Simulated assay, not measured.
Amino acid sequence: MARLSICIPSYNRTTYLCELLDSILAQAPGDVEVVVCDDASPDDPSAAMEPYRQRFAHFTYIRQPTNLGLFENFLSAVEHASGDFIWLMGDDDRLEPGGLDRVRAALETSPGITGMTVGVVDYDSDMRAPVGLRDMPPSQDLQTAEEVFTLIPEHLGFMSALVINRQQWLTVVSRYPAASFQNYYPQVHIIGLTLKHFGGWKIIHTPCVRYRSDNDQFGTSLGWVKRLKVDVESYDEVARNVFPDSPTTRRAIAAATLRTHVISRIVNLKTGSTEAVSVLPVATYLLRYYWSHVKFWTVALPLLLLPRPAVGWLKTLYRTFMPSSGARRVTRLKDGT
Rank of each mutant, 00 (worst) to 15 (best):
F198G: 05
V188N: 09
G199K: 02
G223F: 04
T257N: 06
G200F: 05
Q182T: 14
S174I: 12
L228K: 09
A179W: 04
L193V: 03
R251Q: 14
N241A: 15
L195S: 04
N215F: 08
A179G: 06
G157R: 12
V172Q: 01
E237V: 15
F218R: 13
T206M: 01
V238T: 15
Q217T: 12
K196M: 02
G157F: 07
E237D: 15
H205V: 03
T248M: 05
H189R: 02
L170H: 07
R212N: 02
L170E: 09
D236R: 09
P247K: 05
I191L: 04
L222G: 09
S180H: 12
P207K: 01
T257M: 05
Y211I: 00
S234M: 10
K229I: 09
V232Y: 09
S221M: 12
Y211M: 00
V209D: 00
N215W: 06
T249R: 04
V188C: 11
Y184H: 11
R210C: 01
D216I: 10
A254E: 08
P244N: 15
A252V: 13
R227A: 12
P177N: 03
V225I: 13
T220D: 07
N165Q: 12
G199Y: 00
F158I: 15
A254D: 08
Q187N: 07
V238I: 15
T248S: 08
A239D: 08
L162Y: 04
I190L: 04
Q182D: 11
L162W: 02
V230Y: 09
Q167I: 08
V242L: 02
A179R: 10
T171D: 11
A256C: 03
V230R: 09
R251I: 10
D245W: 09
I164R: 03
E233C: 12
D245G: 06
R227Y: 13
A239N: 08
V209Q: 04
